[in-house]
């Protein structure tokens, strides 16, 4: 091989390693994250270790979702049943709460999700 060949092969190998790390390694965020999905909107992905209050607009009105000390919950919601609020604080990988009348879901995401889906 000529020197140019070595250069190309070396570049290919570097790119392969970079792509592998980029594609297959664990997410870069520190700690666990949460995914908030409202019908018809792009999902919000947020870290669980940063306190924040989200006001999410749904079918019926605004649901207030609070992240506090590594946990997340529905603080208030315009739905009649309030089952989303009764679900309480979520903190573990895969924990999940939904306000179906308002079309909003909250899922705690781990670094390596243990399950592909939850049956209930």
């Amino acid at each position: 091989m000529k020197s140019g060949d070595y250069l190309i092969v070396t570049l290919a190998a570097i790119m392969l390693i970079a792509l592998y790390v980029n594609m297959w390694s664990a997410p870069q965020q520190a700690g666990d994250r949460v995914r908030i999905v409202a019908e018809g909107s792009e999902p919000i992905i947020a870290p669980l270790d940063r306190d924040h209050v989200y006001r999410i607009h749904g079918r019926l009105g605004d649901s207030v979702i609070e992240i506090h000390q590594g946990r997340i919950h529905f603080a208030s919601s315009p739905c009649p049943g309030k089952q989303c609020i009764h679900a309480g604080w979520l903190e573990r990988d895969g924990d999940f709460a939904a306000c179906l009348p308002n079309g909003i879901t909250v899922t705690v995401l781990g670094r390596n999700p243990r399950f592909d889906a939850i049956n209930f």
Binding site: A87, F96, R114, F115, A117, I118, F120
Partner: peptide, 12 residues
């Protein structure tokens, strides 16, 4: 891998 929800608390 499918988790089966706990009938009385959050999680599988």
């Amino acid at each position: 891998r499918i988790g089966i929800r706990h009938p009385q608390q959050p999680g599988a």
